[in-house]
């Protein structure tokens, strides 16, 4: 039988979370290179983790079998990349936390993903539009990371970049086909674009951590990826006969650990097993 809510809140779970929160070692001091690197890597890994989880929610629900399989495979790529990013984040932090500890035992305010990836799936077109807006950033981001001064980051970026090249081809292709499709599909894609647009800008707003990482040549400054993203988005939206929304207002905060209500719902489903059965292994 599934445990009740009070079981989920057992002292075991609290103790486990505390232990995994650094194995008793003091947290890194903010503003140090080690902390900056941890945050930078967690931002990358949390983006792929949360988007991967969102996409995996389609498993068994997509409009046709081939799309169901494609979505599951993209989710798999993203979760695989998460293991690499969060694994390295745990290493950089040096407190013994594994990729699994970071994925399953942090609470919402310690996740640093952009708000875009936690937006609900809604319909198939909405999911693909979210994917496209993300891929159009993800691809140049990984290209830039291939030149990172940290060779471990460059290696992961090179690996992930090959996979993401297929993601952007697929999502761009489907945005075009659905946008320049039937009246119904066009309307849905325009609606998706209008709803998601205010969540795209966060990708290009840097903070002090980004600045220091960029100065050290570890990661590109978020602002520097805007031109490539604009070019891709403009070209694909034009071909898709979709109208780019006016205004550049951007909801922000995810990269600093301030999330929308949706994040809590994602975590309650994603982390449920580890919270209910602390320390359970596959």
């Amino acid at each position: 039988m599934a445990p009740s809510l009070s079981d989920i809140m057992t002292p075991d779970a609290a103790e486990l979370a505390r232990a995994a929160g650094g194995k008793g070692r003091a947290p890194l001091e903010m503003g140090t290179p080690a902390h900056d690197l941890f945050v930078g890597l967690a931002r990358l890994g949390d983006n792929t983790l949360i988007l991967g989880h969102r996409v995996s929610e389609w498993c068994g629900h997509a409009p046709v079998l081939e799309e169901d399989i494609a979505l599951a495979n993209m989710a798999l790529d993203l979760i695989g990349q998460t293991q690499l990013w969060l694994g390295l984040a745990g290493e950089a932090e040096g407190r013994g936390r594994t990729a699994d500890d970071l994925a399953f035992l942090r609470d919402a305010w310690h996740f640093y993903n952009i708000l875009l990836v936690e937006r609900p799936n809604r319909d198939f077109g909405h999911t693909l539009m979210r994917q496209f807006l993300f891929d159009a950033w993800h691809q140049p981001m990984l290209k830039a990371l291939e030149g990172s001064s940290d060779v471990r980051i460059a290696e992961i970026a090179q690996k992930a970049g090959k996979e993401v090249a297929y993601h952007i081809e697929r999502s761009a292709d489907l945005v075009i086909r659905l946008g320049d499709g039937t009246e119904e599909s066009h309307a849905r894609m325009q609606d998706a674009l209008d709803r998601l647009w205010p969540y795209a800008g966060e990708m290009f707003v840097g903070d002090a951590v980004d600045l220091r990482l960029a100065e050290a040549g570890v990661m590109p400054a978020p602002e520097d990826l805007r031109a490539a993203w604009d070019e891709t988005v403009h070209a694909v939206l034009s071909e898709a006969t979709l109208t780019r929304p006016e205004g550049d207002f951007a909801h922000k905060g995810g990269r600093q650990g301030r999330h929308t209500e949706d994040m809590g719902h994602i975590l309650s489903s994603m982390q449920w097993l580890q919270r209910a059965y602390p320390g359970a292994t596959w």
Binding site: Q139, G161, K162, V164, A165, Y166, H167, I168, E169, A172, D173, E231, T232, A235, V236, E239
Partner: peptide, 12 residues
């Protein structure tokens, strides 16, 4: 292999 790059205004 997919390059994911823009070619003449569209994704290759």
């Amino acid at each position: 292999a997919a390059a994911g790059d823009m070619v003449a205004g569209r994704i290759a």
